[in-house]
Design a binder for these strands. Sequence first.
DNA 1: TTGAAAATGAATATTATTATCATAAGCTAA
DNA 2: TTAGCTTATGATAATAATATTCATTTTCAA
Lengths: 143, 143
Amino acid sequence: MQNLSKMDILKSYLETKGLKSTSQRDYIADTFFKTNTHISLDELLKKVKRKTPNIGYATVYRTMKLLTECGLAIARQFGDGQTRYENLPDDGHHDHIICIKCSKICEFQNQKIEQLQAEAAKKLGFTVVNHKLELYGYCSECS
Amino acid sequence: MQNLSKMDILKSYLETKGLKSTSQRDYIADTFFKTNTHISLDELLKKVKRKTPNIGYATVYRTMKLLTECGLAIARQFGDGQTRYENLPDDGHHDHIICIKCSKICEFQNQKIEQLQAEAAKKLGFTVVNHKLELYGYCSECS
DNA sequence: TTGAAAATGAATATTATTATCATAAGCTAA
DNA sequence: TTAGCTTATGATAATAATATTCATTTTCAA
Ligand SMILES: [Mn+2]
Ligand SMILES: [Mn+2]
Ligand SMILES: [Zn+2]
Ligand SMILES: [Zn+2]
């Protein structure tokens, strides 16, 4: 399952779950796969409706739920009350830093932090499954 | 403002804002100050109603908003859809590790992680105001 | 004491998310 | 290809947490 495209991964996930392929689902997924932002359901719905205006909110909602389940999308909550989705990154896990004035979101990776997290968890007897690290502040243009 | 009790800090905050002292507000704040958990509004309301059953949800909500504003309470969201509040800790900032099975919450401090966060932010031109680090996994009893 | 300003609490509004249901579409086996 | 069963869709409604409204009560400074 290394070199399959995202759409192929989705298709095989649907198959294992006994789910069906539909034009709406495909188009929503494809539209999402082409984004490189942290997109909300409303934003994605708007994008999708440009070509297929009759598509419903519920279908976008269910498709993103599906993509999250199979790992192709990651659901994020940055505190503005809206769940946002991003594509599974090629280069592995990353964390976020968010500007509290203009809402700009930057991403960063820090292996040392990840390692220290694991150590802290181990010390408390926990087995970490996932984590959330978000820094909030002012970006260079807003400070 | 070093050695003032939390209630005194609240009182002086109210004063600067031209707000008034009321028995309800005092009792809710005092009840909250005595907690040492991450408490939800519903839980706090229930606790408060034991002695003063006629107190309303809105007053608890508004009091916690006030305490959060003046820094005496910290609002946390651990992903269960409920905002939880904790007292401003005496020993400074801490982060959390949450069991995804039994919901146990442990706290930890790690100065090295904090430092690395600051460095990562600086590299991106950000000035960090606050941050959120949450580890999710299984506690020793659940793994 | 009194009157303007703020607080209260019940109720309602808002908002994001999730569920329902009648109908449409996909798929499998004849 | 078609029949028949399953799943998907989209409009709408239900949920649930949070936030606001408003008539009434309370506070507090003059
Ligand atoms: Mn990201
Ligand atoms: Mn805590
Ligand atoms: Zn900014
Ligand atoms: Zn546990």
